[in-house]
Amino acid sequence: MTRIVVVDDHPIVRAGIVGLLETEDGITVAGEFASGEAALAELAEARPDVVLMDLRMPGLGGVEATRRIARGEFPGAADLARRPGVLVFTTYEDDEQILSAIEAGASGYLVKAAPAAELIAGVRAVAAGQTVLAPSIAAQLVARVREPVPRLTPREAEILGLVAQGLSNPAIAARLVIGESTVKTHLLHVFEKLEVSDRTRAVTRAMERGILPGTSSASR
């Protein structure tokens, strides 16, 4: 019997998902929660094989909840024989949302417009340890990999490399003997070229695209 936990803050949507899953042979709903916090608090007791996770919820969002599940950062995690797989089930098909969820450790990503049969198949696949992506999501990721690699100047790449090492803007300025405002200007150019809005995402995007030393898009 495959045990499922459903996490979605919309009660009507959650009830519909639970009702659908409970009609399937071999699947039982071990819990339903309206927030990431509530799900994490009860996860060890529910002992699910799969967590069906919405992304945008009040408080702890789906991406961070997924990350904590993948890392075993929830009460009673050490008592579980294995951590549950997380299947993101959401209305959002935004590139950043998709990549953030996958980087957080999600085993699959389906959109709520998917047919019921696709959801059921996805749940069974994740329970079996497989990875599941909606066709539209897979196409987006393939297109992302095929995008032209942004070109950073040597100085921009150098500064981003120091960001990846955990250095702050003042520390980078001191290391390179330049003004902190100059560091900020270079980082703004990096953000624009990589189409991101923060330092962490700039580093992960650069790694995805093989821009930082020691990484390559072909190896990812």
Rank of each mutant, 00 (worst) to 15 (best):
R82Y: 05
V149W: 08
E96N: 12
T153P: 09
T2W: 09
A171T: 14
V50Q: 07
T23I: 06
T185P: 11
G166V: 02
A41E: 03
I172C: 05
T185W: 14
I27E: 04
A143D: 13
E22C: 03
G31K: 02
V183G: 02
V111H: 01
A15P: 12
A202I: 10
V29A: 03
E93M: 09
L162R: 06
G166L: 09
A78R: 15
L119G: 11
K193A: 12
R67Q: 15
A164R: 11
D8W: 00
E42Q: 10
E64L: 04
A46V: 06
T91C: 06
M1T: 03
G72K: 00
I211D: 05
A174N: 11
E42L: 15
N169H: 13
A127H: 05
N169V: 10
A15F: 13
R144T: 13
A164G: 07
A127W: 00
E103C: 03
A46K: 09
L133N: 07
R175I: 15
V190F: 08
V51H: 09
G166N: 09
I4S: 01
L187H: 06
V149I: 15
E180W: 01
L167F: 12
S216F: 12
F191R: 05
I69K: 00
L87P: 02
A157R: 14
L60S: 12
A101G: 03
A77C: 02
V126E: 00
A65W: 00
V88C: 14
P135D: 14
